[in-house]
């Protein structure tokens, strides 16, 4: 694995007294898609939320260990959480556009970053919508409410919104779990196109999806990282018995 983007060293996470992540150590390569798989409650979403410190919102969470993004420990006291999140975008399981117009949804990120120029904003909106492959569907109705879009469109809008702040890393928390097969395939194509420019980490329940979209796959079980490797290897010749059992559908 060359070009390491994120290096995790002995990361543990506690919800109160409960240890939800147990000494995770892994390396995530740059400009690749890394899929996190595992049964429900295995900690893969929790781990994903650690990467842009979304777990800070939960008061009882305590985190130990190191999370190095390009060599910088993001849990260091000197690091500003707002700046981390600008560089590490996130797409959520449930599409959550703001109750604003489509244009405002995309322009929100650049606006809070201080971009006021109207022409520049328009350009950003168009570029990010194009990147998210939704521009043709929405270009005539940018002033409509984002809440009126279909589920798949909303999710791609959320991806476009994330792209608009030009992050370095994109985290996706089961982005297609609530979508129909057609929307899902669109999102998967999108992921495929985006990995040229971004490092993508995607949590998924759907093993075919992991196999289709990702370059690397990490298997989590009961808060532990069981195995990480090239997706091909993981799906064909896993080293661990547990991984094989899960992938072949014997449990999970």
């Amino acid at each position: 694995m060359r070009d390491i983007k994120i290096e995790v060293k002995d990361l543990s996470l506690y919800y109160g007294d409960k240890k939800a992540l147990k000494e995770i150590s892994m390396q995530i390569p740059a400009n690749k898609v890394t899929a996190l798989i595992g049964p429900s409650g295995c900690g893969k979403s929790t781990f994903l939320r650690c990467i842009n410190r979304m777990n800070d919102l939960i008061p009882s969470v305590k985190i130990t260990g190191e999370m190095l993004v390009e060599g910088v420990d993001i849990y260091n006291k000197d690091v500003d959480v707002v700046n981390i999140r600008k560089k590490i975008g996130m797409v959520f399981q449930k599409s959550n556009p703001f109750p604003k117009s489509i244009y405002e949804n995309i322009a929100y990120g650049p606006k809070i970053n201080g971009i006021k120029d109207k022409a520049q904003l328009n350009e950003i909106v168009e570029t990010s919508l194009r990147q998210a492959a939704i521009w043709d569907e929405l270009k005539d109705r940018l002033d409509d409410s984002a809440m009126g879009l279909s589920g798949g469109q909303q999710q791609r809008l959320c991806i476009a919104r994330t792209l608009a702040v030009s992050p370095d890393i994109i985290l996706m928390d089961e982005p297609a779990s609530a979508l129909d097969p057609i929307s899902t395939s669109k999102i998967e194509e999108l992921v495929h196109e985006l990995k040229e420019q971004y490092t993508i980490i995607i949590v998924t329940h759907n093993m075919q999806q992991a196999a289709r979209t990702s370059d690397y796959t990490a298997f989590f079980y009961l808060g532990e990282l069981i195995e990480i490797g090239k997706t091909n290897t993981i799906f064909t010749k896993p080293e661990q018995k547990q991984t094989e059992d899960y992938i072949t559908g014997r449990f999970g």
Partner: peptide, 25 residues
Amino acid sequence: KTFTEASLALGASKAQTAFFVILPA
């Protein structure tokens, strides 16, 4: 709460989230 999360994930500060997302909503 998803609006809050979405806004924070975009790199907005707490105050920006409160005044530009939650208050308008």
